[in-house]
Design a protein around this nucleic acid. Structure first.
Lengths: 147, 147
DNA sequence: GTCAATGCAAATCGTTTGCATGAAC
DNA sequence: GTTCATGCAAACGATTTGCATTGAC
């Protein structure tokens, strides 16, 4: 487990305690699965991974959803929306970024563009909006799928 | 009906014919509702508007969904995703733009930023992606809801 | 007349909820 | 011991599908 991952687990403990809630194995497992994943996972994929990697722990899909909502709320993880096809989650251990999504094979490429970020702030300010989050996806065909 | 709206209806007729499909009143009604709407509508809202504005026409919600998929596929309309809360549609008669969405009152403000568009192209090119569409939403609190 | 499009109801899928039980504190 | 979190199954809401019927061509 990398240092960053430990930090996130510690952060979760801190948040839970500070809110007067309880620290459970399930919440930790969901977070750690996302910390170790190198791609974006759906709730169901996380649920299956738990059953695989932690067969001794009994988890319900409802708990996975509850943990994900909680972790997203406290900003330890983030989600991208795939419409009817559900949401995908990733940990916030990586720095902020946006996504290029292949509409054919669903591959996701992450990118950062500071200029875009800056312009977004500007637009928000011009419209007197207090930004709490944003979601930007570019859809298209990846190199392989263009063939 | 503005000239632009007529153009869109004509375009629909052309596309339908070219594809060897059938031109139906229902598809035209769904498109024209979106052409006349000044805000973004859900499938259900469109369905209700049809029952209101075209009470003599019998439509099922399934047909509305089928028409919306079709119209989106041929790029006469576009959608923005609200996750579990469903999709909202708008016609493509207006020029391309992105959205500022209030997480409190759901108000949507449209904006265009050429610089952001340019940077997006650049990012796509750098990753050898062939862009077919994009979706960018900034979430936050609008002026009123900050109070 | 043929074939696509429709309306309806049932089915599906991701997600949420109610409730009794179990675990953290 | 109290209270929050869990697992399970049932409920939910948006969207899709199967199928017999209708309507466009």
């Amino acid at each position: 487990m990398s240092i960053k991952e430990e930090d996130f687990i510690e952060e979760l403990k801190r948040i839970v305690k500070q809110k007067g809630l309880k620290y459970t194995e399930q919440r930790e497992i969901v977070l750690s699965i996302l910390l170790q994943a190198d791609d974006h996972l759906t709730a169901e994929e996380i649920y299956n991974k738990i059953k695989e990697e932690f067969p001794e722990t009994n988890v319900g899909i409802a708990t996975v959803y509850r943990a994900l909502s909680f972790l997203e709320e406290v900003e330890l993880i983030a989600s991208i929306n795939f419409g009817t096809d559900g949401k995908k989650y990733e940990s916030n251990a990586k720095s902020h970024h946006d996504h290029l999504i292949c509409t054919d094979c669903s591959k996701i490429i992450e990118f950062i563009d500071d200029e875009i970020e800056k312009r977004q702030e500007k637009v928000a300010k011009a419209n007197k909006f207090k930004i709490t989050g944003h979601s930007m996806q570019l859809y298209g065909l990846c190199e392989d799928c263009q063939k």
